[in-house]
């Protein structure tokens, strides 16, 4: 029985606490400070996102922006790590790989300066005192996260040609998944949909970088000058089908 399912049957308050994830964040920060460690960068990004959702469930408005600030710096590095992993295997595209590597070095320098910023240390210190979350009290913020996924899904269904809407659904789903994980609810349906949306996002990010390497403005969005490739169109169709298939299950709120 999940925590949410057990609310009505529980005799006393049930709580969730984040000490282990908090400790993991601290460890990732230390490792990322001391060495070039892609797993620490990835771990830091994930733990920041998980803690941000934990604070939502705790109904805290503060520290969430600080976690997003730290996560953004890690994401810039991580996204390029992922691209480089894929592209390094293609020797014919060395110039493009060079472009990615230069961008990664720049992102890495910014990330290092973020890790050394006093705000990062202050954030770690403040997180030491995060409260426990009562499962019962977490229900309203949990329901808001479900509602956000519903809204993003409807917006996508109305305009699936706008790739930003896939991204918006992906972000809303990520938060809902972490909330479900904190509350020990099943996440299989969300994970499967995340895989589809993740594949689309990776393809879009890659194509945006290819455009950039060709001289497009650096802020060129996914809806850039070139029409979407066959691969992107196929992945977006698959992601939309996956959303329609999983929608009901994902939006279900435990009694």
């Amino acid at each position: 029985m999940s925590r949410m399912d057990s609310i009505s049957a529980a005799a006393g308050p049930q709580t969730v606490e984040c000490a282990a994830v908090r400790a993991a964040l601290r460890a990732h920060v230390e490792r990322a400070r001391s060495a070039e460690d892609p797993t620490a960068v990835h771990g830091l990004r994930v733990t920041c996102a998980r803690l941000e959702v934990f604070l939502r469930l705790a109904r805290w408005s503060v520290l969430r922006g600080d976690l997003r600030w730290l996560r953004r710096a890690a994401s810039s590095v991580r996204d390029l790590d992922v691209l480089l992993e894929g592209e390094s295997a293609a020797p014919a595209r060395t110039e493009f790989v060079d472009t990615l590597q230069r961008a990664r070095e720049s992102a890495r320098a910014e990330f290092r300066s973020t890790l050394e910023h006093e705000r990062c240390q202050a954030l770690l210190e403040a997180l030491e005192n995060t409260p426990q979350v009562s499962v019962r009290a977490a229900r309203p913020p949990f329901e808001r996260l479900v509602e956000r996924v519903r809204e993003r899904g409807e917006q996508l269904t109305h305009a699936p040609q706008e790739f930003e809407r896939f991204h918006a659904l992906r972000r809303a789903l990520r938060r809902l998944r972490y909330a479900r994980e904190w509350l020990e609810l099943d996440c299989a349906a969300i994970r499967a949909l995340q895989d589809e949306l993740g594949a689309l996002n990776d393809a879009l990010v890659l194509e945006a970088w290819v455009e950039r390497a060709r001289g497009a403005p650096p802020d060129a969005s996914h809806a850039a000058a070139s029409p979407p490739s066959d691969r992107v169109q196929s992945l977006s169709a698959a992601a939309l089908r996956a959303w329609r298939h999983a929608r009901r299950e994902i939006l279900e709120i435990p009694a």
Partner: peptide, 10 residues
Amino acid sequence: VEGEARVTSL
């Protein structure tokens, strides 16, 4: 708050 909140050891 209409902007952002930030933690600082300062």
